[in-house]
Design a protein around this nucleic acid. Structure first.
Length: 112
DNA sequence: TGATTGACCAACT
DNA sequence: CAGTTGGCCAATC
């Protein structure tokens, strides 16, 4: 049960992202101690579309705070709208206050 | 079944 | 300073 695959872990972390916060693929991968698997996180998001669970993939962006996967959200600015609806400042498909809203699982979910 | 790609990131040349 | 490569796991061709 706890032997979740990489995707399973990614889903858990993404679902734990609080509202009004965003994280990056590398941050999640880093939290999973797999820095090189940042690409896999993106793949997990791609598979999350057919999942029965609601994965807030719109809260996951690249290291530059750029909405790299907005084309996978129905092909429209759905991702941008969702983020703006949570209080994000987005310009040119990039989160302006990304640094303020950045949510790092390895820090927020810091192990005591 | 083997090779390639894929919503990334960081280091090296 | 900018382009290329390496790395990782899983899914698709």
């Amino acid at each position: 049960m706890e032997e979740l695959s990489f995707f399973g872990k990614v889903y858990e972390v993404v679902k734990l992202i609080p509202e009004g916060r965003v994280t990056s693929y590398g941050a999640i991968a880093n939290y999973l101690s797999t820095k090189g698997s940042a690409r896999m996180v993106g793949w997990a998001m791609n598979s999350s579309h057919h999942l029965p669970e609601n994965i807030p993939a719109h809260r996951v962006v690249n290291r530059n705070g750029l909405l790299t996967g907005k084309h996978h959200f129905g092909g429209n600015n759905t991702m941008k709208v969702l983020l703006e609806n949570e209080g994000f400042l987005i310009e040119n498909d990039q989160i302006i206050n990304f640094r303020e809203r950045f949510w790092d699982p390895s820090i927020e979910l810091e192990i005591e």
